[in-house]
């Protein structure tokens, strides 16, 4: 089973393509790294794969079938700014359980404390919020996780901690992961394979 982006072309403005004929494929259970220069369109590709952006050419396909636009999306995206990923008027426990009731053992492994659940988003740090965003996205229905610079806001130790937890859960649920990061070391440590966006993007 794999997630494929086939012949993806996209531009925010009409005559300014950012992605041109991009092909990318992630297997279930695989951890694939995606690197590229700043502004080269990595985040844009992530949004397209996760169905946030729909005005693109080409198809996003799982097992030969287009991802349905309704219902739970098996491709979940987590990105750099967790504070934008939460409704500021919701309590953390509602945010956490919006998609499914997150089991206690996942909360424990992410180190999410009980007392955090009754707080508002602005009462938590970026790293703490990101744990919620990850726990929320890793449901049994998730088949692929797209991680767009998810640990840029935390220190090296926390970064390693968070990634260890994510890799554990991902292995257990047999989820495929696309990792976007500027840090070569991190990519080399985490990923089975690495693709360079400029190499698969024929935009000039």
């Amino acid at each position: 089973m794999c997630l494929k982006g086939e012949n993806i072309s996209f531009g925010y403005k009409r005559n300014n393509l950012i992605l041109n004929n991009v092909n990318i494929s992630v297997d279930r259970g695989e951890v694939l790294g995606l690197i590229g220069d700043s502004g080269s369109g990595k985040s844009t590709l992530c949004k397209i794969l996760a169905g946030y952006e729909n005005n693109h050419k080409g198809n996003v396909i799982i097992d030969g079938k287009k991802v349905p636009s309704k219902g739970y999306n098996p491709v979940q995206l987590v990105f750099q700014h967790p504070e934008k990923a939460v409704n500021p008027k919701w309590k953390m426990k509602d945010i956490l359980n919006e998609g499914h009731i997150v089991p206690q053992d996942i909360l424990d492994s992410f180190g999410i404390k009980k007392s955090w659940l009754n707080r508002w988003p602005n009462e938590l740090s970026g790293g703490e919020l990101q744990r919620f965003a990850l726990a929320r996205s890793l449901s049994p229905e998730t088949k692929f996780l797209i991680a767009d610079e998810i640990t840029t806001m935390v220190d090296a130790i926390t970064q390693a901690q968070i990634w260890n937890i994510v890799l554990d859960i991902v292995k257990e649920l047999n989820i495929g992961v696309l990792v976007v990061s500027h840090e070569k070391n991190l990519i080399n440590k985490l990923c089975d394979n690495v693709v360079y966006l400029d190499a698969i993007n024929s935009v000039n």
Binding site: A50, V75, A85
Partner: peptide, 26 residues
């Protein structure tokens, strides 16, 4: 255009659900 609306949709929530739970309270 907020990211958490996209996320809600990706978590399988309907338009109506998003309108009443996310948008209307604002």
């Amino acid at each position: 255009t907020q990211e958490y609306i996209h996320i809600s949709r990706n978590l399988g929530k309907s338009r109506w659900w998003i309108a009443t739970k996310h948008i209307f309270p604002h």
